[in-house]
Amino acid sequence: MELEYIINSSIAIAKGCKITYSLFFSTLIFSLPLGLLIALARISKSNLLQAATGTYIWLLRGTPLLLQVFFIYFGLPAFGIKFESMTAAIVAFVLNYAAYFAEIFRSGIQSIDRGQYESADVLGLTYSQTMRRIIVPQMTKRILPPVSNEVITLVKDTALVFGIGLADVLRTAQIIVTRDFNISAFLIAGVFYLVNTLALTLIFRKLEQKYSYYTG
């Protein structure tokens, strides 16, 4: 009886995975490249780009993610911009996470010794060749630990979308708990997050090992 209940609840909660996973992967796929672009603009020579990206990062890191989700879902329609709830969530998450990733990329890029740019320069590499072939690969090794942190935080942050009524894993579990007066659905949701963060931890450990072939 108890086991059957847990299996049935798990199947119901698994339906919430769709929202959780699509938000998670959409956020990663768009916010990582966007973050890199923002970081490059942040360290560019243009004062305008520096100021614009500086303000952007300040705004998005300086306010709660849930507030940003609310703003995009409830606030923007007042300006004639209306999104589906899922689209609104993805937009808010991408913009927010891009700001965090931008800061990680920026500090990663700036941690690379000036001599690397100079030796690439005197060898004749262009700026974009230098970034792609020399700087970004070295930066990637250095930023893996902070990126891993952010990605694990993202798994848990996806739960915020219950604020705009999306039936993600946590929201689905909550519905079952209120319906049945039985908290085991919360435990199942907890296990879901733990399994996923564990998987990510292991993936990032592998990646760090992949880059451990050199030091410096």
Binding site: Q116, S119, G124, P137, K141, G216
Partner: peptide
């Protein structure tokens, strides 16, 4: 100022190949 993520060979062929 060698490129630490590249092997000795890769350091040497980097510019001939890309430039």
């Amino acid at each position: 100022n060698l490129f630490p993520h590249k092997s000795v060979l890769e350091n040497i062929i980097e510019a001939p190949i890309t430039v």
